[in-house]
Design a protein around this nucleic acid. Structure first.
Lengths: 131, 131
DNA sequence: TATTAAATAGGAATTATTATTATTTAGAAG
DNA sequence: CTTCTAAATAATAATAATTCCTATTTAATA
């Protein structure tokens, strides 16, 4: 754990605004002025892969130091991003009520990630061949 | 409706692979070689705002000519993108079954869009002031 | 402490997208 | 069917976001 990594992680766990990579860099620079932008990008990428932080599917990408299951509400007007607890998300999607604690939902978008049937079969095959 | 717009829309309604802007451009060029990349970007943007097409929250952005409510399953291995009917999405999120018709869900990400309480109140105020 | 593999800094390069502007065109009006 | 005009387009420059490259530095451990 380098100093750079520690500062990035500390910042993300403190700042709940879902900052961009650029914003993380700007802020960490206050404590470590020579830190490189590329370093911040790489650290964010690694933390993400390790499951230590989470990325938001926004443009530009935003980052979240909180990894307990939750989703996001993005205000179409002010752009602010709010956290939504997982159970509220499910209720909202289930019974189509568009009112949630933080506002009124106009639309939503879900991306599922996993293994498609083809790729599942292939990885099963590979496993079998090794036995 | 210009020829450029027609060709872009026709292509997106025919191609179900959720192409990138670049891919749309490459394909439409086959029929209209002088079409500009910037034109494709602008047309895609306009169609999106009109609700004629849909954008996927991917990097790079992908486009979908099908606008009936549905969500997407992205294979972590091959990268292929599958459509998921809305009711399957809800069932999957509701009872946590991670098997869907197209594969096995490892994770998902939801973005809600709408008006936060502050912005809702503001727009109500504006309305009231006009009465 | 010396060693070394891994990480970083700084900047170049790349990718995706948007802006600019001169030219062209679709569609209205005559 | 022509002429007109606002809107759309082509070509390219510019910007934004991210990744790549490589010489240098550093954390961890022998």
């Amino acid at each position: 754990m380098t100093n750079q990594k520690k500062l990035v992680l500390d910042f993300l766990r403190r700042d709940t605004s879902h900052p961009t990579a650029e914003a993380v860099w700007e802020n960490v620079k206050k404590q470590l002025p020579q830190i490189s932008r590329a370093t911040v990008y790489r650290i964010l990428d690694n933390f993400q892969k390790e499951g230590v932080i989470r990325v938001l599917e926004t443009k530009p990408t935003r980052f979240d130091g909180q990894i307990e299951p939750h989703q996001h509400f993005i205000c179409n007007n002010c752009g602010k991003i709010f956290d939504l607890k997982e159970e509220k998300v499910c209720r909202c999607l289930r019974d189509g009520s568009n009112m949630v604690s933080v506002g009124k939902v106009h639309s939503f978008n879900v991306n599922f990630y996993g293994l498609c049937q083809n790729c599942q079969t292939e990885s099963d095959d590979n496993l079998n061949n090794k036995l």
